[in-house]
């Protein structure tokens, strides 16, 4: 479970890939290249850390800010950009926003945008593993905005009462759109709700990719061993608005944002790698150059990609 220098460099690469993608996607959305973008800049350590140790047959289900999960589980950069551009050359074929992108061979089931409704769905994927006798684990991602929905309580209760192989993974970035957590969530804590369902709960520094990885590995091991779900609450912060559709968020202050930027997950790992002598600054800069090229090539791919024929809109409503 402990990470080798090679693993850490891999993680660094993934963090940086998500960051550069996020930056570019945000820029393009603001420039009006596509309708809307729900950015997760600042939260990169979570998808990178969670997905690092997963088997391809493990399932992930995402919500609005799940871009990093798609990237780290292996959907090509160009295809995700094509998804944002609503082009044909990707699994959505321009029919849905990328949070509904499905790639079952990579373990990616379509997420939902009905806040929290993904939690019972992911619980069902875990139920299938139990019924089918596989050792696959499901990760259900959701934000702090989901925890006051019936879906959260009903989904987690069902997973807990049947000890299903699932990890409930809350990305707490303290704001549901414009609503601060303390104004929406009674009891002052998300993690304390784990206790109500008899689950182990763990609060993790969501900007520390190693901590995220390790907590996930503990929870996945429990799930695989048949010991049931874990609720993980990762504390993090998004650096961009809820979406690029002109969202203003009065409660979020510049000071708060700067404080969180100082905890940038990428800078932290970079420093760690250099201080431990695992990599030189030049080596890491070279990775960045390479990634920038990869992202630029992805955008180029998407720009050049065709739109799907109109008839595609009518397909696969039914099988």
């Amino acid at each position: 479970m402990s990470l080798s220098p090679r693993d850490l460099k891999q993680l660094f690469r993934r963090l940086l890939l998500i960051r550069r993608f996020e930056e570019e996607a945000f820029r393009l959305a603001v420039a009006g290249k596509f309708a809307n973008y729900h950015g997760g800049m600042g939260q990169e350590a979570i998808p990178a850390g969670v997905c690092y140790g997963l088997k391809p047959t493990d399932n992930t289900m995402i919500t609005h800010r799940g871009l990093g999960v798609l990237l780290t589980r292996g959907v090509p950069v160009g295809e995700i950009f094509a998804g944002l551009y609503a082009k044909a050359s990707c699994p959505t074929r321009g029919r849905h926003p990328i949070f509904h992108m499905a790639a079952p061979d990579l373990g990616i089931l379509a997420g939902t945008t009905m806040v929290g409704s993904v939690i019972p769905l992911a619980t069902g994927a875990a139920l299938a593993a139990r019924i089918q006798g596989t050792s696959d684990v499901t990760i259900s991602f959701f934000g702090d905005g989901s925890v006051n929905r019936g879906d959260f309580h009903e989904g987690i209760n069902l997973g807990a009462v049947r000890k299903l192989p699932i990890v409930y993974f809350c990305e707490n970035n303290f704001y549901a759109k414009s609503m601060p957590l303390e104004a929406s969530t009674a009891g002052g804590s998300i993690i304390s709700r784990a206790q109500g369902y008899g689950l182990p709960g763990e609060v993790v520094d969501g900007n520390d990719v190693v901590a995220v990885y390790e907590a996930t590995q503990r929870a996945v091991a429990r799930a695989r061993a048949g010991e049931g779900p874990t609720l993980i609450e990762c504390l993090t912060y998004r650096w961009t608005p809820h979406s690029t559709a002109g969202d203003r968020e009065f409660a979020r202050t510049d000071e708060e944002l700067e404080a969180w930027k100082a905890k940038c997950p990428i800078l932290r790992l970079r420093q760690q790698l250099i201080e431990a002598g695992h990599a030189s600054a030049e080596e890491l800069d070279a990775v960045d150059v390479e990634i920038r090229h990869e992202v630029a090539a992805g955008v180029e791919f998407a720009e050049a990609a065709p739109y799907a024929a109109p008839e595609v809109a009518l397909e696969n409503v039914y099988l």
Binding site: K87, G94, R95, Y307, P310, A313, L314, V317
Partner: peptide, 16 residues
């Protein structure tokens, strides 16, 4: 509208 969910891309939404 045809009996489909509403697609996302403006081109496909135009079909709906």
């Amino acid at each position: 509208a045809p009996d489909i969910p509403v697609p996302n891309s403006l081109a496909l939404e135009a079909v709906y």
